[in-house]
Computed example of a mutant assay.
Amino acid sequence: MRFPITRMRRLRSSETLRHLVQETHLTRWDFVYPLFVVPGEKKRREIKSMPGCFHFSIDMLVEEVKEIRDLGIPAIILFGIPEKKDAIGSEAYAEQGIIQRAVRAVKKSVPDILIITDICLCEYTDHGHCGLISNQQILNDPTLELLAKTAFSHADAGADIVAPSDMMDGRVAAIRKILDENGFNTIPIMSYAAKYASAYYGPFREAAESAPLFGDRRAYQMDPANGREALREVLLDIEEGADIVMVKPALPYLDIIYRVKEKTGYPVAAYQVSGEYSMIKTAAQLGYIDEERVINESLIAIKRAGADIILSYFARHIVPSLI
């Protein structure tokens, strides 16, 4: 049927009708809130490049997580900035490392929040890269042991999910092996399976103090021009034991989110990264956009593309308005 019998505008004529036929809905269960943990006490310091986001010392983190839980956010992901850094990122897998202590403190005070921990070395190495280096080359295989040790230490501290973000080949299998061998066979792995070497990470580098001292991460993170390669990465991670696969960033890679979901049927996470967040916040502060509508539209787009889980710095802002 064609016009005038078919009139697509009929179902757009009122807010109630629009809600009744809306295809994609955000709920609080879609969201994971990223948080940054720093040494010290009574610290709650705003991150200049990410307005509305903060560095928290562990005592203040616990109070923040209580508020997050009360707002209805079901899960957090933790990133740690250690007191000291070295060439091998030893604080990443130390028993009393910043994340290990943070996980124990949060689990003690807010046991019903789900804790995901980022598994990488870049925040902990003095060179800022995600693995061991030799002659300014990133060593893949020797790095796997340290990533596995980090994941084990996080699980042992009480993390509910571990999320390797380093993009080393074979890291999921190495982590699955050490977890299973140590009685953590029920701990899921949320793999950053298609993580691109993106220019959208800039504000995060300040927040996590993880900018590399030389070169960049294009030797191990993905080329933004490649789509089919993302599917290969995802399928390899699933074969190695990943339970959830992630695409990062989110909005510039909606096509990848869609293709991964259609190809695998696996739970798909998408990370709305710091650059996506900061661009919206800055444009809104300058009066160029309607912040509320752009936040909602960007998140709806990510879910419409196929994401089951959205890691977003906007979670604290938007979840209270959701069912």
Rank of each mutant, 00 (worst) to 15 (best):
32 V>Y: 09
32 V>F: 12
33 Y>P: 01
33 Y>N: 12
33 Y>A: 09
33 Y>F: 13
34 P>Y: 06
34 P>I: 08
34 P>A: 08
36 F>P: 01
37 V>D: 03
37 V>Y: 10
37 V>N: 13
38 V>P: 03
38 V>C: 08
38 V>N: 07
39 P>E: 00
39 P>K: 09
41 E>T: 14
42 K>P: 03
43 K>G: 10
44 R>S: 10
45 R>T: 15
45 R>H: 09
46 E>M: 06
46 E>C: 07
48 K>I: 06
48 K>L: 08
49 S>N: 13
50 M>C: 02
51 P>Y: 02
51 P>T: 05
52 G>H: 11
53 C>Y: 05
54 F>C: 11
56 F>E: 01
56 F>Y: 15
56 F>G: 00
56 F>W: 15
57 S>H: 10
58 I>L: 00
59 D>S: 12
59 D>K: 13
60 M>S: 14
61 L>A: 03
62 V>K: 02
62 V>P: 02
62 V>Y: 06
62 V>G: 02
63 E>K: 15
63 E>I: 02
64 E>N: 09
64 E>P: 02
64 E>D: 07
64 E>G: 10
67 E>P: 00
67 E>S: 11
68 I>C: 10
68 I>E: 03
68 I>D: 04
69 R>P: 04
71 L>G: 07
73 I>N: 10
73 I>E: 08
73 I>V: 15
74 P>K: 12
75 A>Y: 07
76 I>N: 10
77 I>E: 01
77 I>H: 05
77 I>F: 03
78 L>S: 14
78 L>T: 09
80 G>S: 10
80 G>H: 09
81 I>E: 08
81 I>Q: 11
81 I>Y: 05
81 I>W: 06
82 P>G: 12
82 P>I: 09
82 P>E: 07
83 E>G: 12
84 K>M: 05
85 K>C: 08
86 D>P: 09
86 D>I: 01
87 A>T: 07
88 I>Q: 14
88 I>A: 13
88 I>C: 06
89 G>N: 09
91 E>R: 14
91 E>T: 08
91 E>N: 14
92 A>C: 13
93 Y>E: 05
93 Y>W: 13
94 A>T: 02
95 E>M: 05
97 G>Q: 12
98 I>K: 11
98 I>A: 11
99 I>M: 04
99 I>T: 07
100 Q>T: 03
101 R>L: 15
103 V>M: 06
104 R>E: 15
104 R>P: 05
104 R>K: 15
104 R>Q: 15
104 R>T: 11
105 A>W: 04
106 V>W: 07
